[in-house]
Design a protein around this nucleic acid. Structure first.
Lengths: 139, 139
DNA sequence: ATACGGCCCGTACTCGACTACGGAGTTCAG
DNA sequence: CTGAACTCCGTAGTCGAGTACGGGCCGTAT
């Protein structure tokens, strides 16, 4: 009955920065594996569950859907474990992520130029932000 | 009556890769400015509206909410045009974007290592992807 | 031993972001 | 000059991702 017993759901929720209900929801959706239970029915989480949930949170903030995140998390074990298939899926995710990084960098450059223009006391209305941001090359 | 007249909503939708209803929705939400109308009531869009909508699309895919995107798009003109305020807001966006890029790069490295492990014919179940992805440093 | 949390479950509700009507007027190619 | 395709508007419905009950069982500090 020490701390090797595992974490209860509320503790995991606190550590990961989400609500208890969110964890149960992720469990239903297959994003967090079903943990062992005590005889009482209480869930007992291994500590690394916290990292998994934090990962889900970050990935959401990066524009991945729960469906995509589930795929990412299951890359290891899915497709009957056939390596070739896993590799292909991983590679296409890498390409997707590269695109996101490129877009973010473009937004960043646009914002930097807005900031620079402001510092040169140029009237804000003349900042070229929108032109840069909504530039011609779309996805 | 040449092409200088402007685009009708359906054309803009096609070019930007969204539905007509989405554009009307964005207009209601203040993400796309209200265009001039013909006497018939038909909207007549300047061509750069297409870029604006593409930008909205990309930004959504990068995890920004419509509220945040509206803020970005209004940076120039909001806050009564007071430069200092605009600059501060832009700078905090830059920081946020830097964080996103860092997280994406971490995911990418994790995926690369999964791919590498696969190519070395290591059994997929042993790939260290999850450990890398859900690493200790959260947001 | 009891009370005040925490946890169980299922169901229902919310919120953001669309998406789909339906009935009327408009455009324009043939 | 007609008919198919497009547009208008308002309202309602959907979908993803949670969030909130409510009634009942656990656990533990006093």
């Amino acid at each position: 009955m020490s701390e090797t017993t595992g974490l209860r759901i509320g503790r995991v929720a606190d550590l990961a920065g989400v609500g208890v209900e969110t964890i149960r929801f992720y469990e239903r959706e297959g994003l967090v594996p079903q943990p062992p239970r005590r005889p009482s029915g209480y869930r007992q989480y291994p500590p690394d569950t916290v990292d998994r949930i934090r990962f889900i949170k970050r990935a959401k903030e990066l524009g991945f859907t729960l469906r995509e995140i589930r795929e990412l998390l299951h890359l290891r074990t899915s497709s009957g474990g056939r390596c070739e298939d896993v590799r292909r899926r991983a590679e296409s995710k890498v390409v997707e992520i590269e695109g996101k990084i490129r877009d973010l960098e473009a937004m960043q450059r646009a914002l930097e130029s807005l900031i620079a223009a402001c510092q040169r006391d140029a009237p804000v209305a003349d900042c070229p932000i929108l032109e840069a941001l909504s530039g011609p090359e779309a996805r």
